[in-house]
Amino acid sequence: MEPNISFVASLIGDAARASMLTALMGGKALTATELAIEAGITSQTASSHLSKLVDGQLLIVRKQGRHKYFQLKGSDIAQLLEMLLNVTSKITHSKTVTGPSDPRLRQARVCYDHLAGELSVALFNSLVKNAWIEDNGINDSEARLTSTGKACFTELGVDFNILNTSKRPVCKACLDWSERRSHLAGALGQWILNDLFNKGWASKDLDSRAVHFTPAGLKLFAKKYDIPLLLPTHSH
C-alpha cells in the first residue's frame, strides 16, 4: 500500500490541531485543558481533535493517576512540524519576519529535545569551524561527527556507546525556523541540551519553549564550545 500523505496532511492541516501540535514541540507533555487553551477552543472540541491525533499516531497519551497527558509520538513528528514552519514562512509575504516574535524564543528555545534559535546556530557554526562535525550544506541532512569531534565530546562527558545504541542519528543538521541556518539535532543535540540543564547554565521557561541562560551559564557555554560571538540575553 502506498503511504497516505493526505491522511497526515489533513490531521495537521486543521488550525486548532496545528496549534496544539506546535505547543507540544517543546517536548513537554500537556493536558487536554492546556492544549485547548493553546488552540483557543473548548475542552470538548479539544478532546475530539486529540483523539484524532492519537488515532493518527501523531500523539501518544501518558496517564498519571487520574490525569492524561499528551506528547508528540517522537522526534520525527517534531522535525516534520519544524519543516512545515519553515515552508510556511517561505511562502508567506516577503515582509513577514521569520520565526517567533518573542526575542527569547528567537535567541534560544527547545525544539522537542534539542536546542534551537540563535545560540544553537552559533553552536553549530563553531562545531563546523573547529572540525568537530562536518556538514555538507544540505538542509535536514545527517551531519558527520569527525574523529576530532568524537574525542572532544568524549572528553566533555559524552558516552558514545550509549548514543550509538539509539536508532536516531548521532548528528543531524536541521534548518532553524527563525535563523534559516542549520542547528544541531540528533542524539548529540539532545545530549548538549540536557547537559545545559543539568549544569544549571540554562532553564526552560514554564510557559513557553524559551530557554533562558544565566549570565554565567552563557559565558561557560560559549567557552565550552568556542563560540566567539555572545548574543545578549533577554530578561523575562
Score class of each variant (00 low, 15 high):
87 V>H: 05
94 S>N: 08
61 V>E: 15
41 I>Y: 07
84 L>I: 04
72 L>C: 03
90 K>S: 09
91 I>D: 05
91 I>H: 11
74 G>F: 04
91 I>N: 09
62 R>G: 11
54 V>H: 07
49 H>L: 06
84 L>K: 02
75 S>W: 03
48 S>E: 14
54 V>K: 03
40 G>M: 08
69 Y>M: 05
65 G>A: 03
61 V>L: 13
88 T>A: 12
96 T>C: 06
47 S>E: 11
69 Y>L: 14
101 S>H: 13
43 S>Q: 14
89 S>G: 12
86 N>F: 06
40 G>V: 05
59 L>W: 01
66 R>I: 06
50 L>Q: 02
73 K>W: 10
94 S>Q: 11
91 I>W: 08
41 I>T: 13
80 L>T: 00
94 S>A: 13
86 N>Q: 01
70 F>C: 08
44 Q>I: 11
82 E>A: 08
70 F>R: 02
77 I>Y: 04
83 M>N: 02
96 T>Q: 07
100 P>E: 08
39 A>C: 07
57 Q>H: 11
68 K>C: 11
52 K>V: 05
86 N>H: 05
50 L>K: 00
61 V>W: 07
48 S>Y: 14
101 S>V: 10
87 V>P: 02
90 K>V: 06
81 L>A: 00
48 S>V: 15
85 L>F: 08
41 I>P: 05
70 F>T: 04
97 V>C: 04
93 H>V: 10
53 L>I: 04
53 L>M: 01
43 S>P: 03
93 H>I: 11
53 L>N: 02
89 S>K: 04
52 K>L: 12
46 A>K: 00
99 G>E: 07
91 I>P: 00
46 A>N: 02
85 L>K: 04
85 L>P: 01
46 A>C: 08
96 T>P: 06
62 R>A: 12
70 F>W: 08
54 V>W: 04
42 T>E: 15
90 K>A: 14
54 V>I: 09
56 G>A: 03
70 F>N: 05
92 T>E: 14
71 Q>C: 15
64 Q>H: 13
67 H>K: 15
80 L>P: 00
69 Y>S: 09
78 A>C: 10
40 G>F: 11
39 A>V: 02
59 L>D: 02
90 K>D: 06
98 T>W: 10
62 R>S: 13
87 V>I: 05
59 L>K: 05
40 G>D: 14
44 Q>W: 14
66 R>A: 10
64 Q>I: 13
75 S>H: 02
101 S>Q: 14
97 V>E: 09
40 G>A: 12
90 K>M: 10
72 L>Y: 01
99 G>M: 09
76 D>L: 14
52 K>Q: 06
54 V>D: 04
73 K>E: 13
95 K>H: 07
